[in-house]
Amino acid sequence: MNAADGISPEDTLGLVQRCANGDEAAYNQLFQAIYEDLRRRAHLQLSGRRDGTMSTTLLVHETYLKLAGTRLALNDRAHFFAIAARAMRQILINAARDRAAQKRGGDQQRVTFDQSAMVAPELSHDLLGLDAAMKALEANDARLAQVVELHFFAGLDFARIAELLGLSERTVARDWRAARAMLRLHLETPP
Protein backbone atom coordinates (compact mmCIF):
# COMPACT_ATOMS: atom_id res chain seq x y z
CA MET A 1 0.00 0.00 0.00
CA ASN A 2 1.33 3.41 -0.92
CA ALA A 3 0.97 5.69 2.11
CA ALA A 4 0.98 8.79 -0.05
CA ASP A 5 -2.26 7.93 -1.80
CA GLY A 6 -3.80 4.97 0.03
CA ILE A 7 -3.81 2.65 -2.98
CA SER A 8 -1.63 -0.37 -3.66
CA PRO A 9 0.58 -0.54 -6.77
CA GLU A 10 -1.50 -3.51 -8.00
CA ASP A 11 -4.73 -1.53 -7.61
CA THR A 12 -3.15 1.44 -9.38
CA LEU A 13 -2.04 -0.77 -12.27
CA GLY A 14 -5.54 -2.23 -12.52
CA LEU A 15 -7.08 1.25 -12.60
CA VAL A 16 -4.56 2.37 -15.23
CA GLN A 17 -5.39 -0.65 -17.40
CA ARG A 18 -9.13 0.01 -17.04
CA CYS A 19 -8.52 3.69 -17.98
CA ALA A 20 -6.69 2.56 -21.10
CA ASN A 21 -9.85 0.62 -22.05
CA GLY A 22 -11.98 3.75 -21.70
CA ASP A 23 -13.49 3.02 -18.26
CA GLU A 24 -14.51 6.45 -16.96
CA ALA A 25 -15.27 5.10 -13.47
CA ALA A 26 -11.69 3.81 -13.26
CA TYR A 27 -10.40 7.24 -14.29
CA ASN A 28 -12.44 8.85 -11.50
CA GLN A 29 -11.12 6.31 -8.97
CA LEU A 30 -7.54 6.85 -10.12
CA PHE A 31 -7.93 10.61 -9.92
CA GLN A 32 -9.38 10.38 -6.39
CA ALA A 33 -6.58 8.05 -5.31
CA ILE A 34 -3.86 10.45 -6.42
CA TYR A 35 -5.68 13.72 -5.73
CA GLU A 36 -3.39 14.78 -2.86
CA ASP A 37 -0.30 13.96 -4.90
CA LEU A 38 -1.65 16.09 -7.75
CA ARG A 39 -2.32 18.92 -5.27
CA ARG A 40 1.33 18.79 -4.16
CA ARG A 41 2.49 18.92 -7.77
CA ALA A 42 0.10 21.78 -8.58
CA HIS A 43 1.31 23.65 -5.51
CA LEU A 44 4.89 23.29 -6.78
CA GLN A 45 3.77 24.64 -10.17
CA LEU A 46 2.24 27.70 -8.54
CA SER A 47 4.80 28.32 -5.80
CA GLY A 48 6.73 31.54 -6.12
CA ARG A 49 4.28 32.99 -8.61
CA ARG A 50 2.46 36.17 -7.74
CA ASP A 51 -0.65 35.41 -9.73
CA GLY A 52 -3.74 35.34 -7.56
CA THR A 53 -6.07 34.05 -10.28
CA MET A 54 -5.07 30.37 -10.05
CA SER A 55 -5.18 28.36 -6.83
CA THR A 56 -3.80 24.89 -6.29
CA THR A 57 -7.30 23.43 -6.04
CA LEU A 58 -8.45 25.22 -9.17
CA LEU A 59 -5.43 23.97 -11.12
CA VAL A 60 -6.06 20.37 -10.03
CA HIS A 61 -9.76 20.60 -10.87
CA GLU A 62 -9.06 22.20 -14.25
CA THR A 63 -6.60 19.37 -14.91
CA TYR A 64 -9.30 16.82 -14.05
CA LEU A 65 -11.78 18.50 -16.40
CA LYS A 66 -9.20 18.68 -19.19
CA LEU A 67 -8.33 15.00 -18.90
CA ALA A 68 -11.75 13.57 -18.03
CA GLY A 69 -13.16 13.96 -21.52
CA THR A 70 -10.25 12.25 -23.26
CA ARG A 71 -9.48 8.58 -23.66
CA LEU A 72 -6.13 8.12 -21.94
CA ALA A 73 -3.83 5.33 -23.06
CA LEU A 74 -1.85 5.00 -19.84
CA ASN A 75 1.13 2.77 -19.18
CA ASP A 76 1.37 3.29 -15.43
CA ARG A 77 0.90 5.78 -12.61
CA ALA A 78 3.97 7.81 -13.65
CA HIS A 79 2.58 8.09 -17.16
CA PHE A 80 -0.63 9.51 -15.69
CA PHE A 81 1.41 12.11 -13.80
CA ALA A 82 3.31 13.01 -16.96
CA ILE A 83 0.03 13.57 -18.81
CA ALA A 84 -1.38 15.53 -15.86
CA ALA A 85 1.77 17.68 -15.74
CA ARG A 86 1.41 18.52 -19.42
CA ALA A 87 -2.26 19.39 -18.85
CA MET A 88 -1.30 21.64 -15.90
CA ARG A 89 1.31 23.36 -18.03
CA GLN A 90 -1.22 23.94 -20.82
CA ILE A 91 -3.77 25.33 -18.36
CA LEU A 92 -1.23 27.76 -16.91
CA ILE A 93 -0.07 28.82 -20.38
CA ASN A 94 -3.66 29.39 -21.53
CA ALA A 95 -4.39 31.44 -18.42
CA ALA A 96 -1.28 33.54 -19.05
CA ARG A 97 -2.31 34.09 -22.67
CA ASP A 98 -5.81 35.12 -21.57
CA ARG A 99 -4.33 37.63 -19.12
CA ALA A 100 -2.03 38.98 -21.83
CA ALA A 101 -4.99 39.35 -24.21
CA GLN A 102 -6.93 41.20 -21.50
CA LYS A 103 -3.94 43.46 -20.99
CA ARG A 104 -4.04 44.36 -24.68
CA GLY A 105 -7.67 45.45 -24.41
CA GLY A 106 -9.55 42.17 -24.88
CA ASP A 107 -12.21 43.18 -22.36
CA GLN A 108 -11.98 46.96 -22.32
CA GLN A 109 -13.52 49.00 -19.56
CA ARG A 110 -12.90 52.64 -18.72
CA VAL A 111 -10.91 53.07 -15.54
CA THR A 112 -9.07 55.87 -13.86
CA PHE A 113 -5.30 55.43 -13.88
CA ASP A 114 -3.98 54.62 -10.43
CA GLN A 115 -0.20 54.18 -10.24
CA SER A 116 -0.47 52.19 -7.00
CA ALA A 117 -2.60 49.58 -8.77
CA MET A 118 0.16 48.75 -11.23
CA VAL A 119 1.39 45.18 -10.75
CA ALA A 120 4.20 43.66 -12.75
CA PRO A 121 2.88 40.85 -14.96
CA GLU A 122 5.93 38.62 -14.41
CA LEU A 123 3.90 35.43 -14.32
CA SER A 124 2.37 35.90 -17.76
CA HIS A 125 5.71 36.78 -19.31
CA ASP A 126 7.52 33.98 -17.48
CA LEU A 127 5.00 31.34 -18.50
CA LEU A 128 4.70 32.52 -22.08
CA GLY A 129 8.48 32.71 -22.39
CA LEU A 130 8.82 29.25 -20.86
CA ASP A 131 6.18 27.89 -23.22
CA ALA A 132 8.03 29.34 -26.23
CA ALA A 133 11.31 27.92 -24.90
CA MET A 134 9.70 24.49 -24.36
CA LYS A 135 8.31 24.50 -27.90
CA ALA A 136 11.75 25.39 -29.28
CA LEU A 137 13.33 22.65 -27.17
CA GLU A 138 10.74 20.13 -28.32
CA ALA A 139 11.37 21.05 -31.96
CA ASN A 140 15.11 20.66 -31.41
CA ASP A 141 15.09 17.54 -29.21
CA ALA A 142 11.79 15.96 -28.18
CA ARG A 143 13.42 13.70 -25.57
CA LEU A 144 14.97 16.67 -23.75
CA ALA A 145 11.56 18.35 -23.66
CA GLN A 146 10.03 15.16 -22.32
CA VAL A 147 12.64 14.99 -19.54
CA VAL A 148 11.83 18.59 -18.56
CA GLU A 149 8.11 17.88 -18.49
CA LEU A 150 8.55 14.76 -16.38
CA HIS A 151 11.03 16.28 -13.95
CA PHE A 152 9.95 19.92 -13.69
CA PHE A 153 6.24 19.72 -14.37
CA ALA A 154 5.40 16.19 -13.14
CA GLY A 155 7.94 16.23 -10.30
CA LEU A 156 9.37 12.79 -11.08
CA ASP A 157 12.91 11.98 -9.99
CA PHE A 158 15.61 10.89 -12.44
CA ALA A 159 15.27 7.21 -11.51
CA ARG A 160 11.54 7.19 -12.30
CA ILE A 161 12.08 9.14 -15.54
CA ALA A 162 14.81 6.70 -16.58
CA GLU A 163 12.45 3.79 -15.94
CA LEU A 164 9.59 5.46 -17.81
CA LEU A 165 11.70 6.38 -20.86
CA GLY A 166 13.89 3.26 -20.89
CA LEU A 167 17.09 5.23 -20.29
CA SER A 168 19.84 5.18 -17.70
CA GLU A 169 19.74 7.66 -14.82
CA ARG A 170 23.02 9.16 -16.04
CA THR A 171 21.46 9.80 -19.46
CA VAL A 172 18.44 11.44 -17.85
CA ALA A 173 20.69 13.63 -15.68
CA ARG A 174 22.74 14.58 -18.74
CA ASP A 175 19.54 15.34 -20.70
CA TRP A 176 18.28 17.48 -17.80
CA ARG A 177 21.50 19.54 -17.77
CA ALA A 178 21.42 19.97 -21.55
CA ALA A 179 17.73 20.91 -21.53
CA ARG A 180 18.22 23.46 -18.75
CA ALA A 181 21.10 25.05 -20.66
CA MET A 182 19.06 25.24 -23.86
CA LEU A 183 16.02 26.67 -22.04
CA ARG A 184 18.17 29.22 -20.23
CA LEU A 185 19.77 30.28 -23.52
CA HIS A 186 16.36 30.67 -25.15
CA LEU A 187 14.94 32.62 -22.18
CA GLU A 188 17.94 34.95 -21.92
CA THR A 189 18.13 35.71 -25.65
CA PRO A 190 16.17 38.86 -26.49
CA PRO A 191 13.41 38.34 -29.08
Rank of each mutant, 00 (worst) to 15 (best):
N2W: 02
A3N: 13
A3F: 10
D5T: 06
D11Y: 03
T12H: 01
T12K: 05
G14W: 00
L15M: 04
L15D: 02
V16D: 05
Q17V: 14
R18C: 03
R18L: 05
R18S: 08
R18W: 00
N21I: 10
D23H: 12
A25Y: 05
Q29F: 00
Q29E: 08
Q29C: 00
L30N: 01
F31A: 00
Q32M: 07
D37V: 00
R39S: 02
R41A: 01
A42S: 09
Q45A: 08
S47M: 01
G48D: 05
R49W: 11
G52L: 07
T53W: 11
T53K: 14
T56G: 04
L58Q: 15
H61R: 12
E62S: 11
E62A: 06
E62Y: 09
L65W: 04
L65R: 13
K66A: 14
L67N: 02
A68V: 02
T70V: 10
R71H: 14
L72Q: 00
A73C: 08
L74K: 06
L74V: 11
D76V: 04
R77P: 02
R77K: 11
F80V: 01
F81E: 00
A82V: 12
A82K: 01
I83K: 06
R86H: 12
A87R: 02
A95F: 11
A95W: 07
D98Q: 15
R99Y: 11
A101L: 07
Q102P: 05
Q102I: 08
K103P: 00
K103E: 13
G105C: 03
G105T: 03
D107L: 14
Q108D: 08
T112G: 03
D114L: 12
Q115L: 10
S116K: 14
V119D: 14
V119K: 15
L123E: 15
G129W: 04
L130K: 06
M134G: 03
M134C: 09
L137V: 12
A139Y: 01
A139H: 13
N140W: 14
N140R: 15
Q146F: 08
V147P: 12
V147D: 07
L150A: 13
F152T: 07
F153T: 05
F158N: 09
A159V: 12
E163C: 04
E163D: 15
L164I: 07
L165T: 07
G166E: 06
G166T: 09
L167C: 14
S168C: 10
A173G: 11
R174W: 10
R177P: 07
A178Q: 15
A181V: 08
A181H: 15
A181Y: 08
L183A: 04
R184A: 12
P190V: 01
